[in-house]
Design a protein around this nucleic acid. Structure first.
Lengths: 117, 117, 117, 117
DNA sequence: GTGGTCTAGACCACC
DNA sequence: GTGGTCTAGACCACA
């Protein structure tokens, strides 16, 4: 697994988990990969995965059944969307297009960049 | 001076200087605030300002006249814009589309948001 | 460790690192000495070593694996040679010929000196 | 007058004076430009020229006739050559060609660089 | 453990 | 006065 160096790995792992939930690869009630399994699969220190899972539990996106493992919460998707989408659309999107405008980058160019991504 | 805590102060100082140049508060050939003056004015350690000025010199946005001080380069504005553009395309754009993907927002929806802006 | 006094220590440290890479004492992918280790080994303040490592990272000769340390880049050797070549041609060569001119030494005499070398 | 920023201006002024003497633009016994005249002609602070003249007097390349001005010494040329030439030929020249060799730059390429200088 | 940021204070050459 | 280098020591997030 390749991680960008400018973003903490544990946050990148959170993004991976969220994506798996949003794309329904992992559904509500499903048991997710154990810390050790996940750590092995992405070649990262288990402590780092532990930290990601901690954060996800705090946000109630996953929860712990003692002795059984970690599971996707009932309303995981709603929590994720609520947490991210509002901020994205109301804050990041306008800022993004504004910067593009400042730098004289047209919408067509942005679409090109999107495709080559 | 208030600095946000999530971004290193020395980078925020670079932003301040770039802003002053882009808004023509400081023009090509102008002497900029000395390390000590700037440090005092924003209540920061001179070493921190030095670090910012060092980076700005490396990027040839300012230059040193020995013993006299630091001055705004001839092409400062072009360099700044080019630099911002590179960062935007290589860093911000991918991050933006990645988040959009994570949130299941299609390119068409983004274009809609762009138009209603 | 003995440093010459006429050249900043942090630049001399950069030279040491480059030398270790060019002589393959440190190879691509190898972890290099940590800031603190290097600082202790050459009896210098960690900040000074940090400054050297910072420059080496900017030039992409070494890179950071977060929390693990700094490692030699894939293309480190090529980058170093290219960098040295640019400096030689743009800085040393003009300075050399300028001094020769000052001392009234002709190009033919220099060629003679080259041959007898 | 354009000065390179990497070499102290007062040393660059010394080089100018030496060149004028070596090229016999200024001969033994000639009165040289006063500090103020020279400073004005190269657009530099008189203190800086003063420093250069001080150094040249220490090296006995020029000397002071009280109230009359500064004059080129009898054996100025010999002093300059002795001071510079030996070191150049015995130290700098070998080092220069050695670096060129390390960087795979041929004598022909160096000659090209000389011509385009 | 790792790198990275920041402060405080000293010293230097240069103009 | 100017920028630049260096030390000492603190604190932080990250793995």
């Amino acid at each position: 697994m390749n991680f960008q160096s400018d973003k903490p790995i544990y946050l990148q792992i959170i993004d991976i988990v969220m994506e798996k939930i949003l794309t329904k690869e992992w559904n509500s009630g499903d048991k997710i990969l154990s810390v050790r399994e996940f750590a092995a699969s992405v070649e990262v220190n288990p402590n780092t995965v532990m930290r990601s899972y901690d954060k996800l539990q705090q946000d109630e996106i996953i929860f712990n059944k003692r002795g059984l493992g970690l599971f996707v919460s009932e309303n995981a998707i709603q929590i994720i969307l609520k947490e991210k989408k509002v901020n994205f659309i109301q804050v990041e999107v306008p800022k993004f297009f504004q910067t593009a405008k400042l730098l004289n980058i047209s919408i067509d160019e942005l679409i090109e960049l999107y495709k080559s991504n």
